[in-house]
Design a protein around this nucleic acid. Structure first.
Length: 271
DNA sequence: CTTTTGACCTGACAGC
DNA sequence: TGCTGTCAGGTCAAAA
């Protein structure tokens, strides 16, 4: 499923094809997502000029001359650039048709994705307005994490996964980053000191950078805009490795559940 | 205010 | 073989 590096990979892949492209149409086959695609959107988009692509958290922002199209890929969504004669699959829910006949096709078996439109500045849009700091920005550092987590009783892992604090850190990266930082996922956030906060931040940036520089990782069924998996085989050190041996200490990886999400960790390497 | 739980959806897989 | 049940995931809304 796409996490932040995967969205960024898709953005970079689509950018040369979409920048300054003219939108011929938006074809919606199935508007039923978490938020329905407004029926008026197609008409609004016809003839629009795409100026740029940007990203906020895991939202892809398609900057148009008359507003912003905001796409979220949920957990099973993909955006692929296809030719006009490509066969339409069962889960191909909408097409952004360009004037040159090429299509940006959204496929999402589980329909957790969504498509939004706003003519306001995107940062004012309700779903984006309360998002936290970007994990790859300079603002996100050990000091920031330390101060932001004071007085918070939730576990450090759940804190990191809360989009109101830091965006773009999903379950897999949270598990992996905490292992790399040597921090136990169950520790209450307020009890993680500055030194460990710094290690966590470094580990998050490092893990995201690794996947990013390799064009996305092969997280489950991720494919980039050309329909290819990421070239970087992110070998999980703890995620989905319950009962297997820790690569560092040879102890058994443990699995628990936090907020209905699987947590994987090494009890002796993470404290 | 913070924190927890439920809901959404469907493919994959385990167990009968 | 085929049915049923459970799980995964991101993230908002509602409940506590």
């Amino acid at each position: 499923m796409p996490e932040l590096p995967e969205i960024e990979t898709i953005r970079l892949g689509l950018l040369p094809h979409l920048k300054y492209a003219l939108v011929r149409d938006l074809v919606v086959r199935n508007p039923r997502f978490r938020w329905p695609i407004p029926s008026t959107l197609s008409a609004q988009l016809r003839g629009a000029r795409i100026l740029d692509l940007s990203r906020r958290a895991k939202y892809l922002l398609i900057v148009c001359d008359r507003g912003h199209l905001i796409a979220h890929l949920g957990m099973s969504g993909s955006l692929r650039l296809v030719s006009g004669d490509r066969v339409i699959g069962k889960h191909d829910h909408y097409d952004l048709v360009l004037a040159n006949g090429r299509i940006v096709r959204f496929t999402d078996p589980r329909r957790f994705g969504s498509l939004h439109w706003t003519s306001e500045p995107p940062e004012k849009y309700a779903l984006l307005a309360n998002l936290g700091v970007e994990p790859l920005s300079e603002a996100f550092d050990g000091e920031w994490l330390y101060h932001a987590s004071r007085g918070r009783s939730v576990s450090i892992k759940q804190f990191l996964m809360d989009q109101h604090h830091v965006v773009g850190v999903g379950n897999i990266y949270a598990n992996e980053a905490l292992f790399r930082a040597g921090v136990h996922p169950h520790i209450p956030a307020h009890r993680v000191g500055l030194e460990r906060c710094t290690r966590i931040v470094t580990a998050i940036k490092h893990t995201l950078d690794l996947a990013l520089s390799a064009g996305g990782s092969t997280l489950r069924d991720f494919v980039n805009c050309d329909g290819e998996p990421g070239s970087f085989q992110l070998s999980y050190r703890v995620y989905d490795r319950e009962g297997k041996l820790c690569y560092r200490c040879q102890g058994a990886i443990k699995m628990t559940r936090q907020g209905q999400r699987g947590t994987f960790y090494c009890p002796s390497c993470q404290r």
